[in-house]
Amino acid sequence: MNILKQLKSWEGILLAALIVIIVVNSILTPQFLTLSNQINLFSLSIEKIIVALIMTFIIINAEIDLSVGSMMGLSACVFGWMFLNGVPVWLACLLAIGVGGLGGALNGYFISKLGLPSLVVTLATLIGFRGLARVFVEDRGITDFPEWFDNLGQQGFIGSIPFAMIFFVILFIFLYVILQKSGFGRKTYIIGTNRDVADFTGIDTGRHKLLLFIGSGMIAACAGLLYAARLGAVRGDAALGFELDIITIVLLGGVSIFGGTGNLIGTLLAILIVLNLRNGMALMNITGHIQTGVIGILLIISVIAPNINISKFFGKRQKTS
């Protein structure tokens, strides 16, 4: 492995940025490196980073799923509604994940069988799923879930590490193996690079996309349930707007919006950068609009930078000067 080549890659830049952020945070805020802060740092955004993992697949496949935030809300609301109507909590969880699979299949059907652009389809379901979520719980909050369910989101599962973090780690390893080591993963890249070529080589691209969107829906539904457990409450606007944060992370991770390139290591580094940056700013009492602004600038850089050929950019400038 050529270290120099690695460092020049996007992942290398991300790693360097991450180290800078962590060093600066550690110097400026004494509490940053404490174990409890490191766990909080993940817990506060755990649902988003879980969905970012499957979003990496979707974008590499040259698609997008804007409906994940609404699906998180819908799954939480379906769960809350069933809980109110006396369905046992474990069954309500399973059914909510089932709703996630169905919603994902709906997206996948329109995209793979009818050939509609995923941007349009998932924009429609972003609105549709959210509307449905609000139908289930209306303008109210559902609380008072059983203690074990709330504890799952709020207490340590192994030691002080919460369940959602363990779920994230296992999901990461599982998806990493699939994307980087399996035929399914290779097909994801090939279809993302050029769907027509993939079709000619005999890959069932429609089925592949359908499976990806079902997976996206189900994982988003799981994340919605974890969100409900962490807050101990469900509301119609749960996870509103989360899709943008999720997509931001994936793009920052070096996954091209045009498909075909990127990997889960990049996404993981981007997750760590965004979470550490947010946490550091919060500990320095930078909140609200300024924090949103800084993350926004980060996104602008991350979308533009990988698409600029730096030597070409500077080369042209040298000619004109």
């Binding site: 409890s36 909080n40 506060l44």
Partner: peptide, 12 residues
């Protein structure tokens, strides 16, 4: 946001 600030305040 309130939950995040509450958590951060405890850490601080």
């Amino acid at each position: 946001g309130q939950i995040e600030i509450m958590t951060t305040s405890a850490t601080q």
